[in-house]
Design a protein around this nucleic acid. Structure first.
Lengths: 209, 209
DNA sequence: CAAACAAATTGACACTGTGTCAATATTATC
DNA sequence: GATAATATTGACACAGTGTCAATTTGTTTG
């Protein structure tokens, strides 16, 4: 328990490192949220953190990595939404569960609006962050594909459609609405959006007598 | 016809201006396509065009405006696709026409891949270009909304869904696939993507007996 | 406890790119 | 040919990045 190499040795020194890192992260979050990703500079962040210029580069590779660390909490919450169970017995149950997931997804956008505003900007600018976001996306799509295959096996869903293609399309629509919610550009409520998207997705826009 | 103010007066001078502008545009296109939007610099462009540094700023506000002018042809073609007529008599006809439009949309992505690759990058980085792209998008969505309202009036489509919301979702899925095609990240053919998206959009993923 | 060592912090520096503007070159007018 | 109008130019000031030798701070050892 009192191993020298891991705890006592690094006591004060390691503590300083951790504190500096933390100061940088707190400052970065503030500066990012007060401005945007583009216009935020390392100088602003180190000034706010009260550390020297070079220090930022000791702890992080640059603006991108700073944001990636700040994104982590939000991303965890997305993963949680992605992993919700899906085992409907009927088409109605399926529709209900899908609508719930879509709602949860968009509500997350609302709750994490501030951070996601920055993330969206960063996706456009930074390769690393774009890659990070793609991971989230692929995880969702993979999960949705699985759900579709399940529904096809149990005879609920049409077997003639490529699950991966359908899953992508469905997620894309949700993702775009997610960012509309983040930008507060939507007129309709989250519930109505989720309901409408789900209705089209599950039963289609056209009448079938 | 031989009005002094518009033609003869500006003859040689105006010609020079036009030529310089053209040189810049040609050079910009080349440099953009050989690299990407981020890494392309004004210096590279003026060097290629064989003009002085300041000249670029006389003719264009910066990299963004240069690209906007280069985008125009592509955008015209998108507008043409958006304005295809839609007056189906039956649900089958509707599905066919929608699938055709989706295919045309994705084929355009394939044909204009190079330019659109740059455009996509620029959307993330430049406010002006993002705005420009939003105009295209809104034009499509407006058009799709109209088509949906038409189908609802003629009793083909479900009347309980908000046309604007449905239209956005449908376009978003198409738009995301457009950029996947541009990035050559798709495994499926354009025809299969269009067919699958349309099938879900019009009749839904789930079975209805 | 005072060297000697190790690790963290720092800011000056070299670089890259931007946008501006006074000076210069070209073309038009009288 | 002189003067006026317009187009072009590149040097300059500025803003931000990332690096690294020097410095500060903390740890160990004789």
């Amino acid at each position: 328990m009192t191993m020298k190499s891991d705890e006592s040795k690094v006591d004060k020194r390691h503590l300083r490192t951790v504190r500096t890192r933390e100061k940088l992260l707190v400052a970065a979050r503030q500066v990012f949220l007060e401005n945007d990703f583009q216009t935020t500079t390392i100088s602003q962040i180190i000034k706010r953190a009260g550390v020297g210029y070079g220090t930022a580069y000791v702890h992080f590779e640059g603006k991108d990595e700073l944001l990636i660390v700040l994104m982590e909490d939000v991303m965890d919450r997305f993963h949680q939404v992605a992993e919700q169970p899906f085992e409907p017995g009927t088409a109605e149950e399926a529709q209900k569960q899908i609508e719930q997931q879509a709602t949860a997804f968009l509500q997350l956008a609302e709750q994490e609006r501030e951070m996601l505003r920055i993330v969206e900007q960063a996706i456009g600018i930074s390769y690393v962050i774009r890659t990070k976001w793609k991971q989230i996306r692929e995880r969702f799509i993979e999960r949705i594909s699985r759900d579709i295959r399940y529904a096809q096996r149990t005879g609920l869903a049409r077997p003639d459609l490529n699950p991966a293609l359908v899953a992508r399309g469905w997620f894309f629509a949700n993702e775009m609405y997610l960012f509309e919610v983040v930008r507060e550009e939507t007129t309709a409520s989250i519930e109505e959006i989720a309901k409408t998207l789900t209705a089209v997705y599950t039963t289609g826009l056209y009448e079938h007598g």
